[in-house]
Design a protein around this nucleic acid. Structure first.
Length: 556
RNA sequence: GCUUCCGUGGCUCAGUUGGUAGAGCAGCGCAUUCGUAAUGCGCAGGUCGUCGGUUCGAGUCCGACCGGGAGCUCCA
């Protein structure tokens, strides 16, 4: 029987029923055959070995396609698991997905996987690639699948299958040689296609990402179709290491960290020049855009943090101290101080929008393992501002902030950036209508400005939706820096009011925003982006004159 | 916080199977003024992260703690 297959570009070809996508790829040319990673049959992601039984649309995916890339690297992770199973038969397998730059696999294994062990594993993987084992899919009922995995002592797989058991689905496995692995697929047709790979590191990782569960050993690796691609990727990693702001910061004497204050950066004279240049620029720009600058205390009494809600949510991360029998908290955010200043006198609608900026030093007790140079510290300066306004002013104020962000990111530093819109989370406060109003305002403001954005449903703050601005550095890495958050909760909690044109009190709406995010982190990003060769206006040392003649020597 | 690796003069590092610390750069002194990746000679600088243990003896072995790296968790 013949079937009609609609190929990419709308070309329709006739084949015998039962033909596989990989055979079609072969007919279309060896280049495509060799590059093929997976396929879509009528939109559904499938293996290249899946037989086509009826008329359908077929899209053959290569490494250039995200799903093709995933299939490729996921196959590499199966090869890794097979190699580990061969070398350490007692190992229990957890999970091993493809990730952004490669793949990983989690193992429950008593032998620590040192770099030497990784070399052995890599050698075994090469052998498996050479064997070019076909990956064949087969399916079992959940009960049979569980029995099979229990028989092998694969406790983690049993747990995974049990979660699917209720749904009555068939459980799929992929078999390559002696190795049979629970997996949804799709995969490459055989292990021989994973030509270029490398295991990059081994660390601990919790089973299911849950800190209360067992710590497993996670082996990271990366894989590409061509050796040159692997090499250039590894070279890019090396380049990133050279640009590490911790190294450059030390070399250029910008900042330092000392044992007396883990996670608390010290700025050296040269770093201070850079920092002040950046802040002067920031201040000038914000004054031009109608901002006022305030400074609020670094420490305020505990009652304030109850009012703001921070105590309930984040007390574990707050530094506190007992003074005169009263608990004081070092501020982890600036907003409550800003609220108090708004409240400090009677406000009129004529004052709105009121833009109060604050370069506020905040302290957060981050877990020791989370610290990372200037990128993740325990005290940092936010280029914060709170804008108090009427509902009608929301859109224009958002546009104003977006304009500042564009001025700094793009026009000043030449960064590309993209925007993400995060909407109402499940455990949020406030009415749905208010949320819709706020979310629409964010959407409309940036859409009218000609921006597109990525949607993060349910990822907003508990008090309102937000726009996040992610910039891309010269190595293609993205950093979330700017944020615009619409906040209906704080004005409510703090009972903020202004007197309207109708001579009645009204509750203002608030924007909480930052452009650079953290001054320290932004300096870290700039350092890596420019590899220490800062733009002239920022550079701590702009010119150095070298004297080489007698008369230039200092008098003895 | 968890897993794992690491911690030697300001910086980058050597220190073999445990026997009382080495180099280069930087610094200082003297000499050199010599044309663009680093002039020569010399000096100074470390209780080898801290505390404890094993040993006749530990930078080198063991433990705890502190700090750091990688990742996990977290990131208002």
């Amino acid at each position: 029987m013949a079937i009609q297959v609609t190929l990419k570009g709308g070309v329709i070809k006739e084949f015998d029923a039962g033909i596989r996508a990989m055979d079609i790829a072969k007919e279309l040319g060896m280049g495509l055959y060799k590059a093929a990673c997976a396929c879509r049959i009528d939109g559904a992601l499938c293996d290249l070995r899946t037989p086509l039984t009826q008329d359908c649309a077929l899209d053959i995916l290569t490494f250039d396609d995200e799903d093709g890339k995933k299939a490729f690297r996921h196959t590499a992770s199966h090869i890794l698991a097979q190699a580990v199973k061969r070398l350490y038969p007692g190992v229990k397998l957890a999970i091993g997905p493809a990730i952004d730059n490669g793949f990983y696999y989690d193992f429950d294994l008593d032998t620590p996987l040192t770099p030497e062990e990784l070399q052995k594993i890599e050698a075994e993987m090469k052998a498996i690639v050479k064997e070019a084992l076909p990956l064949e899919k087969h399916e079992l009922d959940a009960a049979d699948a569980i029995a099979l995995m229990q028989g092998r002592g694969e406790d983690y797989k049993v747990e995974l299958i049990a979660e699917h058991a209720g749904k009555g689905e068939k459980i799929s496995f992929y078999k390559q040689g002696e190795f049979d692995e629970l997996c949804a697929g799709p995969h490459l047709p055989d292990t021989g296609r994973v030509k270029a790979f490398a295991l990059t590191s081994c660390t601990g990782a919790y089973w299911r990402g849950d800190a209360s569960k067992k710590m497993l050993q996670r082996v990271y690796g990366t894989a590409f179709p061509k050796k040159e691609e692997l090499e250039s990727y590894l070279a890019a990693i090396e380049e990133a290491k050279k640009r590490d702001h911790r190294r450059i910061g030390k070399d250029l004497e910008l900042f330092t960290f000392l044992d007396e204050g883990p996670g608390f950066p010290f700025f050296l004279p040269k770093g201070m020049i850079l920092r002040n240049n950046l802040l002067n620029f920031w201040r000038d720009l914000h004054m031009q855009r109608g901002y006022q600058e305030i400074a609020t205390p670094i420490m305020l009494n505990q009652g304030l943090w109850h009012t703001s809600g921070h105590w309930d949510h984040y007390k574990d991360n707050m530094y506190t101290t007992l003074i005169d029998e009263e608990t004081f908290c070092v501020k982890p955010m600036n907003c409550p101080g800003g609220m108090l200043l708004f409240k400090s006198k009677r406000r009129s609608y004529r004052e709105l929008p009121l833009r109060m900026g604050e370069l506020g030093l905040v302290h957060r007790h981050e877990l020791s393992g989370a610290l990372h140079g200037l990128m993740r510290v325990r005290c940092f300066t936010q280029d914060d501002a709170h804008i108090f306004m009427t509902p009608e002013q929301i859109k224009d104020e958002i546009k104003g902030v977006v304009s500042i962000i564009d001025t700094i990111y793009k026009q000043t530093f030449g960064f590309d950036y993209h925007i993400e819109l995060s909407t109402q989370p499940e455990d949020s406060m406030g009415e749905k209508e208010t949320w819709d109003l706020a979310t629409d305002a964010l959407h409309e403001a940036i859409t009218e400005m000609g921006y597109s954005y990525k949607l993060n449903p349910g990822d907003g703050a508990f008090y309102g939706p937000k726009l996040d601005f992610h910039l891309t550095d010269c190595l293609g890495r993205t950093w979330q820096c700017g944020t615009i958050q619409l906040d209906f909760q704080m004005p409510e909690r703090f009972e903020l009011e202004y007197i309207g044109a109708d001579d009645q009190p009204h509750r203002p709406i608030m924007i909480h925003r930052a452009v650079l995010g953290s001054i320290e982190r932004f300096i870290g990003i700039l350092t890596e982006h420019f590899a220490g060769a800062f733009p002239l206006w920022l550079a701590p040392e702009q010119v150095r004159i070298l004297c080489i003649a007698d008369r230039h020597l200092p008098a003895a």
